[in-house]
Design a protein around this nucleic acid. Sequence first.
DNA 1: AAGCATTTTTCCGCCTAGTGGAAAGGGTAT
DNA 2: ATACCCTTTCCACTAGGCGGAAAAATGCTT
Lengths: 249, 249
Amino acid sequence: MSVQSVDRALDILEALAERGGEAGLSEIAARTGLPYGTIHRLLQTLLARGYVRQESDRRYALGGSLVRTGGVAQRMVGGWAEPYLAKMVELSGETANMAVLEGDFVVYVAQVPSPRRLRMFAEVGRRVLPHSTAVGKVLLADRTDAAAVFGRTGLPRRTEHTITSVDRLLAELETVRDRGYALDLGEEELGVHCLAVPVSDGDRVVAGMSVSGPAERISALDRDELARGLRKIADDFGSEAFGSGRQGF
Amino acid sequence: MSVQSVDRALDILEALAERGGEAGLSEIAARTGLPYGTIHRLLQTLLARGYVRQESDRRYALGGSLVRTGGVAQRMVGGWAEPYLAKMVELSGETANMAVLEGDFVVYVAQVPSPRRLRMFAEVGRRVLPHSTAVGKVLLADRTDAAAVFGRTGLPRRTEHTITSVDRLLAELETVRDRGYALDLGEEELGVHCLAVPVSDGDRVVAGMSVSGPAERISALDRDELARGLRKIADDFGSEAFGSGRQGF
DNA sequence: AAGCATTTTTCCGCCTAGTGGAAAGGGTAT
DNA sequence: ATACCCTTTCCACTAGGCGGAAAAATGCTT
């Protein structure tokens, strides 16, 4: 049903991405379980097209050609997310956002603003640090290297409520995993509260969706009930947008 | 030398990207020249992996899986660009940036700041409109649909120098094509001048690199000589980062 | 509502394009 | 200088992929 060599080429690209965009041939072999000759041949093909690049030490890295298609795809995904974000706005009355983790940063990729007069507005494309945002917390809760991320970024204090202790933050991520949603109680911007839920591709958390608004309005909502509603929407979106991924086991 | 089916799968992905991320099977066939059966089979493979998605009207679109790899690749490219941007800083004494076009926006993907006390600082990841920036102009100069972009974005006045007439702007793009570099004379921010040059993958303009600084300092430089120097650096980077693309003709 | 044109999907025999084990070639650490 | 590890090349085998053409689905026109 599937074309073997294409499948394998994608495996290689993904293996490279998981290793942070760079790996040696044998590292790829270890991860994918493919024979060396095969990997080398497929890499040559990707190399010739600029999807992979070879460094001077003969290691392989993801190449520039992925940027173009990736950018186009990101806008598409943002577009598909809009109806779902609109549902979240309907449910909560507040502005809804979708964000992904890019490196150590949270990047907003789509937004549907609240119809209210007083509302949040975070431009699409904006980058923020994960430790002080609800989406950042859901995104990191799924990763085992959260502590390393905090090590690199530090935990700059944004407001008096920002959590600046690594231990407290890791404990909070634990809570996020357990209850399935994350909060930001004025940690990024004073007077602004957010509630975020994960978007999964069936295997891993690939994005986060959140609603944000003035502290008083958000506090007035029933958190658990809201979270339940948002999770449902995020799950629907996840299976629609990323759903066909990871089949064939 | 190259694996045929992988090459073809990449052709399909690129055809989709060129069509704005969405196309019917026969559109892809027209563009790639591949037989229907073959395209369909390859699309099924990409579909199963989430690299492509099928809409309700049976058309195909780029899928979410590209976002992950694309994001990782973008950071890699930004990293490779740094030594080149550093050379530009050395040459001009001013902050150097690299940016790409994402949809109708210019997105900064890498930066090396000037060592001077008074310097430009535009955060990586920032989005701006193309009409009022030098990088925006080089990026659009290569596209035939620049007028359409301006139609969608409008030409908001950022300063008293911003060009707000479509005709004047299109004429300026013509000039940019001819002389090989673009200027921004306080059109985005008062008192800030920029000079940008294109980065090509050998076929099309895929990014722009620019230097920006206080109007007085930039004016004091010999534009044509500076442009020549920057072009050389940008060309070197282009062939290094995207160079192995488009072989095999 | 029926028929026509267009586009997408399925099928299957042919055979080429891809596979992968193993050996040769490079780098670099000891 | 040598040994080890990682990468690249080679080649005989055959499974995996190819693509023409028919079937099915969709949607447009009359």
